[in-house]
């Protein structure tokens, strides 16, 4: 009867984006970010926007949910846009009023920056968080980085830690709620007083929570040992990731997108984006 705790922002679904290999999605996301930053004129930006729309449609995730994802960075977007509008100097003044000078270049830059941030957030979250469970992401990361284990980077250990953290976050949230209720029942007051008083009121919650987390950690270590866990060496996996045709099609697609952006940057005209 607890709140349904879902973390990350995974949206249940079975679209082609959901079914891509997480390793492919990680690589695609990185290449996509590069493509976004390469774009520097109206035409290449238009191509980026078009591709973002296509991805959104393919994901089958409602624009409302995607919009929600942008909300937290709204301030950042507005801030950078304002800076661009007021501080970029160019050759085409539009408004001049005391110390305020707005140039056409500033407006164009602001528009480009807004598009860049929005597309960046929408597309990386579409590939990584909305359509991929945290656990699949961890698995993908582990297998992508597996070669690093040769140079003693603890890739498996890191991914095991991630998995366990993901497993225990909901448990600890539930536990926090329980302990808070227990201390409330003894008259603890978490909601009045200044910052310091509130922080102090949390001590009776944090101490039991830490003690319980340590106990759980030690129990879990014992249980893992009893289940013959000896680290990553000699381990097999039940679910082996297998890249398929669709993964390569998408990879090719994003490379083509990058090439398109570079070509348009070079040969198409129109407003350019840049620091004046």
């Amino acid at each position: 009867m607890k709140m349904d705790i879902t973390f990350g922002q995974y949206v249940e679904g079975n679209s082609i984006l959901h079914r891509l290999d997480p390793r492919a999605k990680l690589i695609i996301a990185i290449l996509y970010v590069v493509a976004i930053f390469l774009a520097n004129n109206v035409c290449s930006f238009a191509l980026i926007v078009a591709s973002a729309v296509l991805i959104t449609v393919l994901s089958g995730i409602s624009p409302r949910i995607i919009g929600r994802g942008i909300r937290p960075v709204l301030i950042l977007i507005v801030f950078t846009a304002v800076i661009n509008i007021f501080f970029v100097r160019g050759d085409h003044p539009l408004v001049s009023f005391y110390f305020i000078h707005i140039y056409r270049e500033g407006l164009v830059n602001a528009a480009f920056i807004i598009i860049r941030i929005v597309v960046l957030i929408v597309c990386t979250s579409l590939f990584l968080t909305y359509t991929t469970t945290p656990i699949a992401l961890t698995d993908g990361l582990e297998q992508l980085l597996a070669p690093l284990a040769k140079i003693k980077v603890p890739v498996h250990e890191f991914s095991m830690m991630m998995t366990i953290a993901l497993r225990f976050i909901p448990t600890l949230i539930e536990e926090t709620e329980k302990i808070m209720n227990a201390q409330k029942a003894r008259g603890a007051d978490f909601s009045s007083g200044g910052l310091i008083k509130r922080a102090r009121a949390l001590i009776p919650v944090l101490i039991p929570l830490f003690i319980s987390a340590f106990r759980r950690a030690s129990d879990l270590a014992t249980a893992m040992e009893c289940r013959c866990y000896t680290g990553g060496k000699g381990r097999t996996r039940m679910n082996v990731l297998r890249a398929g045709v669709k993964d390569f099609v998408f990879l090719f697609g994003v490379v083509a997108l990058g090439a398109g952006v570079v070509l348009l940057n070079k040969f198409a005209g129109g407003y350019r984006f840049g620091l004046y």
Partner: peptide, 30 residues
Amino acid sequence: MVFQNPDNQIVATIVEEDVAFGCENLGVPS
């Protein structure tokens, strides 16, 4: 061994992944 606290012995975030955990440690083929 099966322990007292059910929460503190489950490693994975999906049931079947957890059941597989021990076999994976033993190096059983997929």
